[in-house]
Write a protein that binds this DNA or RNA. Structure first.
Lengths: 204, 204
DNA sequence: ACATCAACCGGAGAACTCTCCGTTTGGTGG
DNA sequence: CCACCAAACGGAGAGTTCTCCGGTTGATGT
């Protein structure tokens, strides 16, 4: 009668049980074999279910891995919402907080994200998290620089968190998260400054 | 004696013959089956060589597809070099020309690039073209804004050409190339403006 | 011409992804 | 308690990717 509070209307008991089994099996295999590979075949075997079950529920590897990360993502969103409620910060400050927080979120889940997007990287732009983040960033950019192409700038800002790039910068280039945050700051200031310059020009 | 002018020192005749066969077979299959898939097994069969031969020479699908695009890339580089020779344009103008030209290059080869990075997207950052472009862009950014983190900004500018994103913007969002160029212009101006603002602040 | 050998060839085979569909089962209304 | 069926299960199988290694061959020096 009452929906089980977890998922969509009335998830069957066996489905719920198997969902947990699969997620736990995935965590177990990742802990054992490292974060560089995760065969869904192996996950199914470890979970004691058929491969069909795994694929029906999670669609593909990114789907499974995102399910593993979901909690961190919602915590990040809550933290951001809380920050916005504190003393009504300016668009500039909110954007900065969002981008910095995002950098930390991605850094914390670097290996998992990398694994997720090793396959099906094109699906990223259609995914729900990407769309949501895009909307949020575009909103703040519009506020900060009403004249600029907010949608495009939001795209580019989001690309800063592409797992492959992020990991490359952190690992191969040896940059720390602060350097990345600093780079993003330049961009934020640049967007604001370009807008200002634009305004001065057209109001001259 | 004389190197065959094509490749590394003394490519064997059979190797050269097979290389061409494979490339032609790939073009044939792409023309026939569309640009959404390209099985290297099928390419090998079509070319009349073993799969091992294909993989040894091109390593993986991106490798093969990049070989297919290589000509366009060198034409782009030559055009850019020519532009830089014309009347010594400013860093701002050169960067703008480079980014716009790149947008057209990527647009022209959209389908192939998308195909190439459908697998092995992480390899992108280590690839020779990426490194070369990065260096070129970073150089111009340094000239334009000596205070900013040129390496980071170059990374981000290059991410604008990620095949998945580019195709998404063009196809799903229905943007034309000019809109993308316009978005890049805002960024270029922003980088310059932020730098200027920075300078004013520190010289105050 | 011929011997030598590094480089190349080819395809069997291991591992993986994802689909398809016949079978089973949890939930519900009578 | 039972009958019903939408939903979930599972694993065989088709299609790929990529590796490995025994066999072959093109280039070179004599």
């Amino acid at each position: 009668m009452t929906a089980p509070a977890g998922r969509a209307p009335t998830e069957r008991a066996d489905a719920a049980r198997n969902r947990l089994r699969v997620l736990e099996a995935a965590r177990r295999l990742l802990a054992a074999d490292g974060f560089t590979e995760l065969s869904l075949d192996a996950v199914a075997k470890e979970a004691g279910v058929g491969v069909g079950t795994v694929y029906r529920r999670f669609h593909n590897r990114p789907g499974l891995v995102y399910a593993l990360i979901e909690d961190n993502e919602t915590r990040f969103q809550e933290a951001f919402t809380r920050h916005c409620a504190d003393g009504a910060p300016s668009a500039h400050d909110r954007l900065r907080a969002f981008l910095h927080g995002m950098a930390e979120l991605v850094d914390d889940n670097r290996e998992l994200l990398l694994l997720a997007e090793a396959s099906a990287p094109a699906g990223r732009y259609r995914s729900a998290p990407f769309r949501r983040h895009h909307e949020q960033i575009a909103g703040m950019v519009t506020e900060l620089a009403p004249g600029a192409d907010a949608a495009y700038l939001a795209d580019l800002l989001l690309m800063a968190y592409t797992p492959g790039l992020f990991d490359f910068q952190r690992t191969e280039r040896g940059w720390d998260v602060d350097r990345i945050k600093g780079g993003l700051d330049v961009l934020i200031d640049g967007i604001g400054a370009a807008e200002e310059a634009d305004r001065r020009l057209s109001h001259q």
